Amino acid sequence: MPTRTARLTAAAAATALAGTALAMASPVSAAGRNGVCESGEFCYYFNSDNKGSVSDFTGSVADYGAKQPSCFDFKGAGAGKGDCVKNAAASVWNRSGKTVRVYFNSGYGGRYQDFKAGAKGNLNSGLKNQNASHQLLGSTPPTGCKTDGTHSRLPTTILVYRVSLKRVDRVAFKTYVKNVLPNEWVPSWPRESLRAGAVAVKNYGWYWALHSTRRTSWGECFDVYDTTSSQVYRPGSAKASTNAAVDATWSTRMTRGGKILQAQYCATTTACGAWVDGDWMSQYGSRDKANAGWTHSRILTAYYRGIVLGS
């Protein structure tokens, strides 16, 4: 897949809009990681006894990252705010509805401690300030290179090559989509444009989870890059408006001939040399059509020829 540097990103959009201040929404509830422990989340606290800053999650995470700005961090008020979660948590509150296992090592390895649904507690002496991953049990992510997704079922996770960090992260698929969309579509754009973008971003990742044979220089398999070589993925970047678009369209499946479409997109119809009518969507075009009153379904069927939108 060629690098698509002409595709719109948040930074490019800011430049294209000639310095106009964009109305970037605040992170939303659980999915936005807002530093508040809410229903459906698994939460770390910086201090023992559920005190200090909070870091909230909605799914399993195989590696929190060790450095800013790419790590998962403590977002709530209080001691530890802004610090990376890895090897820094002291207590938890499990509001996810499933048993959560906290691991000493990244990749769900090493010693561990389980917290049942609803449980609050301190990490034991073997895991306090020595935590590197956690997993919601009963929703075990696949291992190795093979996805558990099909053309009719979403993948549970996606393998993301973190190019600058020189590692591959296994990311919950919905978390991936929510942390791509605000970096590819401008979060202040109209709702139907964001919904069209949400379907395209999801379909693009879904396609590569099913088809990728990529490997890093050291031989590790992955599905997508975290750059414009695929889609720009930045952990913790989810926004309220883009999360809402993802949630509203999560059940939508875009297929052509019964197969998941590799939904490609670019800033405009002329910005990307690889543009093919019927296979690509214009990001600015989706904005303009939404402003003109088009629904996201109409936008998608106008750009992607011969598709079927279903569930």
Rank of each mutant, 00 (worst) to 15 (best):
V61A: 05
D169E: 15
A23Y: 08
N47A: 13
G59L: 05
Q283W: 00
G82I: 01
H151I: 05
G278C: 07
D63V: 04
A10K: 14
T143C: 09
A14I: 08
T216C: 12
A25L: 09
N87M: 03
E184W: 03
S193W: 00
R33F: 06
L127M: 04
R33I: 11
W189Y: 03
L136V: 08
R33C: 04
F72Y: 12
G138Y: 04
D73M: 06
A14Y: 05
V171C: 08
A11G: 08
K116D: 11
H134E: 07
G97L: 03
P155I: 03
N124L: 06
A21C: 12
K239Y: 03
G126L: 07
T269K: 11
A88V: 03
V171W: 02
G236V: 09
N131D: 10
S217F: 15
Y64Q: 03
I158D: 02
Y44R: 02
M254T: 03
A292D: 09
I307W: 00
I307N: 00
G59T: 11
S241F: 11
W185G: 10
G205V: 00
V102C: 07
P141R: 10
L137K: 08
G219S: 12
F115I: 01
G76N: 06
L194R: 13
G205C: 01
W275M: 03
A23C: 02
G97Q: 08
M254G: 10
T270L: 09
S230Q: 08
V180L: 07
